[in-house]
Design a protein around this nucleic acid. Structure first.
Lengths: 129, 129
DNA sequence: TAGTGCTAGTCTCTTTTTGAGACAAACAAT
DNA sequence: ATTGTTTGTCTCAAAAAGAGACTAGCACTA
């Protein structure tokens, strides 16, 4: 319960870089991060495979998001000296340990998607008054 | 296991708006969303209180993030006719049910912050080679 | 009565981030 | 010779976020 006992972060000595919630979440909270983590949690994928799996991600964002996830230690990048060289991305132990609780949130999203969409409709309707 | 069985989303008939993971996560994955949810999971707060709790959020983003969270049904906005009028934000049932699994991820962040930071140092060092 | 401060925002301007799409290099197959 | 494959990078346009001034109504203070 460490980080959940008091305020989101220690307010007295505020330091955004020292807040674990922000520091970790800001990375996995990206538009594409969870999607890629969900894919790589199942099995390793190559760059092009991920690109086909998430058709509307640009190469630029795929490259960048993968590098960020690699930097934080969630995924591994392995280059194979084939011709042309191929690159395989796989989830690390740390990544799997993160994905365990994260999968629960993803499951929640699936289970409650209808409720969220209903809330939106209701909200948008009341805005028009 | 519904959404976790196969690919992140049904790839054959791809529709970003129909993917629960994307539709739900894109909202709670914002830079400030989890932080505000964490605060409001504990007790209701007023606009100014939240602003002080998260010093480096701009009024603009606080307003907008709160409205987005309200739109998705996670929080309630109640105006009190005091002078000057005050507004209280509180977490809904839906919000609490989301926060239950989300709290596990937040706890993970607290427990593994050191490992993530270590991974970053290692990555950045190997980049300089 | 003028000045100051509180509330919860909005409006505008600048900076940062993201998206779209062309381009690269090296080799295989046609 | 041309086309296709791989994993990226580069540039430019569009979208989003951040900074800070501004609003309105009322209370308190001088």
């Amino acid at each position: 319960m460490s980080t959940l006992a008091g305020e989101p972060c220690d307010t007295s000595s505020w330091d955004a870089g020292n807040c674990p919630v922000r520091d970790v979440m800001n990375q996995i909270a990206g538009k594409w991060s969870t999607l890629l983590l969900e894919a790589l949690a199942q099995k390793p994928y190559r760059f092009g495979e991920l690109r086909r799996l998430v058709p509307d991600i640009s190469q630029r964002m795929l490259t960048q998001t993968l590098r960020d996830l690699q930097r934080d230690g969630y995924i591994d990048r392995q280059v194979f000296p084939t011709k042309p060289p191929s690159v395989e991305y796989s989830m690390t132990e740390l990544g799997h340990s993160l994905f365990e609780p994260l999968a629960k949130v993803l499951a929640w999203a699936g289970d409650n998607h209808a409720a969220v969409k209903a809330a939106r409709v209701k909200f948008d309707a009341s805005e028009l008054g």
